[in-house]
């Protein structure tokens, strides 16, 4: 079921384009405005929320229709739509996407820092010496950073002695508020949350 959803999501952009163009040509108007596309996209979201799924017909036909009409879709004005589409592409398609034209290449380049951060963070954390306060501060930047930092904490080698640290400190009630104890508890909770997500995703597939 999940794979069917994915397939439908990948073809959804073409469905939206085709639907807008077809509706417009029925009305005798060949021009497609951004407002039409945004409206179509929102309609599409509401359809998804209601759980109704349209069966995609011929994929190639839609591609031809779009190209023949000389359809242009400026990335700058509709970032959320592009981001949604871009996230569903695989690595090879992402490269092709960025090579399509200068405008798209620049748009992808501007997103590079957020795409690369999850890979760069473990290297930076190992090589440099970021204070704990700064690392924690980074959790409030955005959701993906928060997730990456939680994962970094959970995978830290010191985690393997967390249980013993917590156990030892819990026996000393007067040390409950120490930073060591709080950090250890935080790491354990982060680890449990990551583990839960991992198991959920694994069994969901």
């Amino acid at each position: 079921m999940k794979s069917l959803h994915l397939k439908i999501d990948r073809t959804m952009s073409y469905l939206i384009k085709e639907r807008v163009m077809r509706d417009k040509s029925d009305q005798g108007d060949d021009s497609v405005t951004l407002a039409d596309l945004v409206l179509a996209y929102e309609k599409n979201l509401s359809v998804k929320k209601e759980g109704r799924i349209e069966e995609p017909a011929s994929f190639e036909t839609r591609m031809e229709n779009v190209e023949v009409a000389g359809y242009h879709f400026p990335a700058d004005n509709l970032t959320e739509v592009w981001l949604n589409i871009f996230e569903k592409l695989d690595a090879k398609d992402k490269i092709t996407f960025s090579k399509t034209c200068g405008e798209w290449h620049d748009w992808v380049a501007s997103k590079r820092t957020s795409f690369l951060f999850s890979e760069v963070l473990p290297v930076v954390a190992l090589t440099s010496n970021l204070p704990v306060k700064e690392l924690l501060n980074c959790r409030t930047i955005c959701k993906s950073w928060s997730r990456d930092f939680n994962l970094l904490y959970a995978a830290h080698p010191s985690h393997f002695r967390l249980e013993s640290v917590i156990g030892a400190l819990e026996n000393k009630i007067w040390e409950f508020n120490t930073t060591d104890y709080r950090m250890a508890r935080f790491k354990r909770e982060s680890y449990n949350s990551v583990l839960k997500n991992f198991c959920f995703n694994k069994y969901d597939k």
Partner: peptide
Amino acid sequence: FKLKSDFKGNEEEQTRLENRWCVE
């Protein structure tokens, strides 16, 4: 880093509280 906050509701405040709990 050319990022935008995508926290919803009080998620950001919740994260700040967790941070404070860790370091104080």
